[in-house]
């Protein structure tokens, strides 16, 4: 857009940058060369493949919505308040980011499983979470939530509170300020966070297989289907892997943060 010359970067930096890009892109190219193209359509349109894709999109959408509902308040509290132990709390909230997803799945199992911390209470209430689509959404939300919290908290901190101060001086109550000023101003950050969360949820495997199980149309999302097909029908697995890559790329391209910017 602008014709301004950017500050110069050292020439040598292109080499490791290109190396890094190759490292990421080459496997994607490799996987597309492995696809059995003549049968591609048949491979990805089988009942089990379609069920897995639909389930993946549905659960990822639901868990992204859940991430927004829970993550926006969390990021706001972390960015706009200070209390003892806040640093520790932030680290704990972001823990799923660095935990192996399988550990997350185990943690969820020990919380919501039949013999888990809340298992008895849930059983009394007649709620069964294990082996249900709810469990898939919970597992995805667990691993994707930090992405939303992290990017939104960053946006809130960068934005500062000057506009909120003005809005309050105009007589707006905190809820009005939050709804009409804070949220619209961090919308690009929120959108970026939601896209990241969706992408993370879409790729979620470890926590799901540990916590939710694997049943066609109920809990077997695309990554689980790919892992399963790898055993019986490797061609289908590769075709589905490519579908997952394409869906992820599309989502990131459509809602990429620069576009959402003002």
């Amino acid at each position: 857009m602008t014709h301004q010359r950017a500050a110069a970067i050292p020439r040598w930096i292109y080499l490791p940058a290109a190396l890094g890009a190759t490292f990421v892109l080459l496997p994607l190219i490799a996987i597309s060369t492995k696809v059995d193209w003549p049968h591609f359509a048949a491979l990805i349109s089988s009942d089990s493949s379609r069920a897995a894709l639909v389930l993946s999109l549905k659960t990822s959408g639901a868990s992204t919505a859940l991430c927004v509902l829970l993550g926006v308040p969390m990021a706001t509290v972390l960015a706009r308040t200070s209390f003892p132990g806040q640093g520790l709390l932030r680290s704990l909230v972001l823990l799923p980011l660095v935990l192996p997803p399988v550990v997350g799945g185990l943690a969820l199992l020990y919380t919501f499983g039949r013999n888990g911390l809340l298992g008895h209470t849930l059983a009394v209430l007649g709620i069964r979470i294990a082996f249900s689509t709810i469990a898939v959404i919970m597992a995805q939300t667990f691993v994707a939530l930090p992405f939303l919290v992290l990017s939104l908290e960053g946006a809130l901190r960068t934005g500062g509170q000057r506009y909120e101060v003005v809005a309050a001086s105009l007589g707006a109550k905190p809820t009005t300020v939050f709804r009409r000023i804070t949220l619209p101003l961090v919308m690009p950050g929120l959108l970026a966070g939601a896209v990241l969360s969706f992408a993370r949820a879409l790729g979620e495997f470890g926590a799901t297989i540990t916590f939710a199980g694997s049943l066609q149309g109920v809990t077997r999302t695309l990554p689980l289907e790919i892992y399963l097909q790898r055993e019986g029908d490797p061609d289908a697995a590769v075709a589905l892997a490519l579908v997952l890559v394409v869906v992820a790329v599309l989502i990131i391209a459509i809602a990429r943060p620069e576009r959402a910017g003002r």
Binding site: V165, V166, A168, S169, L170, G171, A172, K173, P174, V177
Partner: peptide, 10 residues
């Protein structure tokens, strides 16, 4: 009183 309740514009 909180800022929004003071009827003071800045």
């Amino acid at each position: 009183l909180p800022p929004h309740d003071r009827e003071i514009a800045l």
